[in-house]
């Protein structure tokens, strides 16, 4: 890949909950350890080229949002590094702080929660560039106006408050606020998930237009496979904190390699195929507090063999631009018990 602007290298993010005083007292007496650890993100390595939109797809608890927050510098990774053009984002685990977080901007899921209800839209958009001194004070108004127009709103809306806007319009404001910082990377965390389909189409079109105009680089986090297919160049599928497959979007949708990806496609209802017979994935998503040993997907996988229960599969690269973490793709020795691929 040419010129990766964002490099995520071996990143893990764990959240630990220490027991309260009583339980920890009992722990001391009995020698137990009641500390719970959630492995939100587990040894993820990804890179994004300049001008590329990478989709991160997965179900709840797969770590996709935690991943977005690590990239944005909101969370410090427990292990590994995130670098933007070679410089670490926020702080790494050694505590080195770099003020690069302004170069990554995030767009959140809920535009009702992400805009301050007491600030005028113009102030919301101008706040970042003003604080960081990106534009001279006398140019602020003009800049806000042009940003609003760029996202398909009227410049005069700068004096309105968020409650005067519909959900779709608010999300446009959130996009304008992110663009005001002239970021190198946008992180969109379920940015269209809360919108109605007709409004979602408008916001997706806006995103694609801005992308063409501004050559945006973005991490597009979503659970919606058809949205991701529409806007992303490359897709990473996550399951229980790990990336299980990455591929260019068209190749992934044409031929998924990981059984989880395939099963995920099988469970999604699609328009225009008529009455479907569902082939849902069996079982529940395991808890990230106590993920299954070996391949995290093995309890639900129709092809799992003994090796899958014991050994975490490596990410292998069956072709130049794809990678997959499955024993079946790595020597094909996952299924000595007779299950056939």
């Amino acid at each position: 890949m040419t010129d990766p602007i964002l490099k995520i290298d071996g990143v893990s993010k764990r959240f630990t909950r220490k027991p309260g005083p009583i339980v920890s007292g009992i722990d001391k007496l009995t020698g137990r350890n009641s500390t719970q650890t959630v492995h939100a993100v587990n040894d993820v390595t990804l890179s994004v080229a300049r001008g590329e939109v990478l989709g991160i797809v997965g179900e709840s608890g797969c770590g996709k949002s935690s991943m977005g927050r690590v990239v944005s510098g909101i969370y410090a990774p427990t292990e590994g590094t995130v670098t933007l053009e070679g410089k670490p984002v926020a702080r790494d685990h050694r505590g080195n702080v770099e003020k690069l977080t302004t170069r990554v901007q995030m767009i959140h899921q809920d535009p009702f929660a992400s805009l301050n209800p007491r600030m005028k839209v113009g102030e919301i958009i101008a706040e970042g560039p003003r604080i960081h001194g990106l534009i001279p004070a006398r140019e602020v108004q003009e800049r806000v106006r042009s940003l609003l127009e760029q996202v398909g709103l009227e410049g005069a809306y700068a004096n309105r408050l968020p409650h005067q806007f519909s959900g779709g319009q608010r999300q446009r404001v959130a996009i304008a606020r992110a663009l005001a910082m002239q970021p190198d990377l946008l992180v969109l965390d379920e940015a269209v998930a809360s919108l109605d389909v007709s409004i979602q189409a408008q916001v997706l079109n806006l995103f694609m237009k801005l992308r063409r105009e501004l050559d945006l680089t973005a991490l597009f986090i979503s659970h919606d496979l058809s949205v991701v297919r529409h806007v992303c160049d490359r897709v990473a599928i996550m399951y229980l904190g790990r990336v299980v497959e990455t591929a260019p979007a068209d190749e992934l949708y044409a031929k998924p390699l990981h059984p989880y990806t395939e099963a995920l496609f099988g469970s999604v209802p699609t328009l225009g195929t008529g009455r479907a017979r569902f082939h849902p994935i069996k079982g529940e998503i395991p808890s990230p507090i106590n993920p299954p040993k070996g391949c995290a997907f093995h309890p639900r996988c129709p092809l799992a063999g003994p090796r899958c229960k014991a050994e975490v599969p490596r990410l292998v690269t069956p072709s130049d631009n794809r990678s997959v973490a499955c024993h079946l793709q790595d020597g094909g020795t996952g299924t000595q018990t007779g299950a056939t691929a």
Partner: peptide, 11 residues
């Protein structure tokens, strides 16, 4: 619900 769980319920 998540898609894989939604699929189970729809079925």
């Amino acid at each position: 619900l998540d898609v894989s769980i939604q699929g189970q319920i729809l079925a």
